[in-house]
């Protein structure tokens, strides 16, 4: 367990600096002439690093921008602003063929096991697609390499000629993982990899991801809305709210002593399977505001019990309140 921020001696695998993504909202021509075009502030000035062989968690509710960040890092969409360094090199500078070649360094596993595999392809061709695209292995060795990858994720190589619909949700996630591993990526992005699975199967996939990460020395960005899953898998965690990171800390510190009021509220809101802490849900009021018109100042202030006048006026700075434990709140104290 690594509770401190990565030291600069070893370059982190991924450095995200001031990342911004705004989506334009479609509206009719006349409206856009009359007023400023509307935009969704999906990701607003987000910075974090993912260390070598670290599992870094991004957690938040809907509209927090966590999945958008995953897509930005995978270069599936282009950011509005900010920089990203992958192993110290400018990851956003790459374009065209150079980007396609470099994509092997960042691979992704997706949330929906029923949509992440082409229904018309056999498992073998799905897992072989990255191999043939990047010509990683000679054509004759593809078959053997696919078998090896399938075995690595706990599937029978003899099932390679089957189609996705012949597998259960958990098995499909394994296939997706094999595809992502085929290119030996430096960074693996797992976007809600278990949220579509049944609880008893979730654990299989979580343990598999952890084990693969260790065996393949991967850096892992783990995106989830489920705090208990994040707590189980991650070394460090960033909590997001409405496009911003509100708190970053080592997992142990974050869950033992959350500093940001939002993190505290989030943890208090989770119903736990225990009778020891039975309670009436004293949750925070209100719902997540629209990311088109985010609240001024601290975005959490309209729902925060501790908010004061300053919170509506000024965006709180990210402060290191304890070693490696950062929070963006005017009044948070360690």
């Amino acid at each position: 367990m690594n509770d401190t921020v990565q030291t600069t001696a070893v370059r982190p695998t991924l450095e995200v600096r001031h990342l911004i993504k705004h989506f334009a909202v479609r509206q009719d021509v006349f409206a856009s002439l009359l007023r400023e075009p509307l935009k969704v502030h999906a990701v607003d000035d987000v910075s974090f690093t993912v260390g070598r062989e670290e599992t870094f968690g991004l957690v938040g509710e809907s509209g927090s921008g966590k999945s958008t960040i995953g897509k930005l890092i995978a270069r599936l969409i282009e950011p509005t602003g900010g920089t990203m360094l992958l192993d110290g090199e400018d990851w956003l500078a790459l374009r065209g063929a150079a980007l396609r070649r470099a994509r092997r360094n960042v691979q992704m596993i997706f949330q929906n096991p029923y949509a992440s595999l082409d229904p018309r392809w056999t498992v073998e061709s799905i897992v072989a697609e990255p191999l043939s695209t990047h010509k990683v292995v000679p054509r004759g060795d593809v078959h053997g390499r696919v078998a090896e990858l399938l075995r690595a994720v706990g599937l029978e190589p003899s099932h390679a000629q089957r189609f996705p619909h012949q597998f259960s949700g958990g098995q499909r996630q394994r296939i997706g993982l094999a595809r992502a591993l085929a290119l030996n990526p430096r960074l693996l992005i797992a976007d809600e990899p278990v949220s579509a699975l049944d609880v008893s199967v979730q654990a299989q996939i979580l343990n598999l991801i952890q084990d693969i990460q260790e065996r393949y020395h991967l850096s892992l960005l783990f995106i989830s809305h489920d705090l208990s899953v994040v707590k189980y898998v991650c070394d460090r965690v960033a909590v997001m709210y409405l496009g911003r990171v509100v708190e970053v800390a080592g997992t142990r510190a974050l869950f033992r002593r959350p500093l940001h009021p939002y993190t505290q509220a989030l943890l208090a809101a989770i119903p736990e399977p225990t009778t020891k802490r039975r309670r009436i849900f004293a949750a925070i009021e209100g719902e997540i505001p629209s990311p088109i018109h985010p609240p001024s100042g601290c975005r959490f202030h309209p729902r925060c019990a501790r908010a004061r006048a300053l919170c509506a006026l000024e965006t709180p700075e990210f402060r290191e309140l304890a070693p490696g434990h950062w929070a963006a709140c005017h009044y948070a104290e360690a």
Binding site: Q202, A203, V229, F255
Partner: peptide, 20 residues
């Protein structure tokens, strides 16, 4: 098999083998 917030970080989850 479920990860728990109320338990220690190091407590491992034990999956139920197989599928439903």
């Amino acid at each position: 098999s479920i990860p728990r917030l109320d338990l220690d970080e190091d407590a491992a989850v034990r999956p139920i083998p197989g599928v439903v």
